[in-house]
């Protein structure tokens, strides 16, 4: 791939980017070779040319955006305004070879346009269109000299590609962050901790739990235990269809942590399937206080708290 080749040529001292332990890669944050290399000088010349044609090229770009039916959520004026900023940031990134400013701009742009409903393909699309518009301008200028044109493209392409990736990734990350926040908010809403009687809390868990939600639940529960001075907590997992070892371990840890706050935990609604899964995972169920169903769990809790449940003649408990 051209981008990597140019990297290796211009930055020989860079260590391999895969971490030995985890194999994770470091995201390179340089847009291009350090200024001062011959490529840097050339890039500055290209940028000067692109800056000169700024108005015309930007307008051409906006035209292409509209023809491609991108950014339909925005008005023409808005597109123009954002296009101008993107254009300038793009050229700065090309010229300086550093991406921080562009990353920051990409983030703030994303924050603005995500609530407007702009989608990933639109953001990627407009950046690629800009890359094309600028490339064509360079073609036009240097077409007479084939060797020179090659040098120009050698300098321009990897830098432009890295910029495109930066903007796209910035947008996607911002989107993911927004989605995560929404999920957390939903998560908190959907699992309220209910103070039922004095010193008794019930935590009904419904649906599938992943590691993050499990942790959220634990944090919420522990804070509720302290706030309500609960002595017994009933965690009902009737509504949980399946559990993996991570979540099971989390449940055990929640029980242990509650105990540290002086609260006893009763787990109810443990289906035979989940019980089997837990046993297979090596969990010692005898250490957990489990009762068949929620009703039974509440009665057990009340018994532990010293309440007496009296059933009236007409009612069956």
């Amino acid at each position: 791939m051209r981008a990597h080749r140019s990297q290796a040529r211009d930055e020989p001292s860079r260590p391999p980017s895969a971490h030995p332990r985890t194999g994770r890669r470091v995201a390179e944050s340089r847009a291009g070779p350090p200024a001062g290399a011959s490529t840097g000088v050339l890039l500055r010349e290209l940028v000067a040319h692109l800056r000169q044609g700024r108005t015309q090229l930007r307008d051409e770009w906006v035209q292409r955006i509209i023809e491609a039916r991108l950014l339909t959520a925005m008005s023409r004026d808005e597109i123009f305004a954002e296009a101008t900023s993107v254009y300038d940031n793009y050229l700065d990134a090309l010229e300086t070879g550093t991406l921080e400013a562009l990353q920051a701009y990409a983030r703030s742009l994303s924050e603005r346009i995500i609530p407007r409903g702009v989608e990933t393909h639109e953001v990627v699309g407009i950046v690629l269109l800009l890359r094309d518009v600028l490339a064509r301008s360079l073609f036009a200028k240097y077409q007479a000299d084939f060797q020179m044109l090659n040098r120009v493209l050698d300098a321009y392409e990897p830098a432009a590609n890295r910029i495109a990736i930066t903007v796209a990734v910035g947008f996607v990350q911002e989107r993911e962050r927004v989605i995560r926040e929404q999920q957390e908010a939903i998560g908190e809403l959907s699992t309220p901790v209910l103070p039922v009687r004095e010193r008794l809390l019930i935590l009904p868990i419904i649906g599938l739990i992943d590691a993050q939600r499990a942790r959220q639940l634990t944090e919420q529960l522990l804070r509720s235990v302290r706030a309500n001075r609960a002595k017994v907590v009933v965690i009902d997992i009737t509504g949980v269809p399946a559990m993996d070892s991570n979540v099971a371990n989390h449940l055990v840890r929640t029980v242990d942590a509650s105990r540290l706050l002086g609260a006893m935990v009763i787990v109810t609604g443990l289906s035979p399937e989940i019980a089997q899964t837990l046993v297979k995972l090596g969990l010692d169920l005898s250490k957990m206080n489990t009762v068949g169903d929620l009703q039974g769990g509440i009665e057990e809790a009340e018994r532990l708290l010293g309440y007496q449940v009296v059933s009236l003649p007409e009612e069956k408990s």
Binding site: P15, H19, R24, V26, S29, E100
Partner: peptide
């Protein structure tokens, strides 16, 4: 700043 992880060890 950005932090290349290798740099910590090296």
């Amino acid at each position: 700043g950005r932090e290349p992880r290798r740099a910590v060890a090296s």
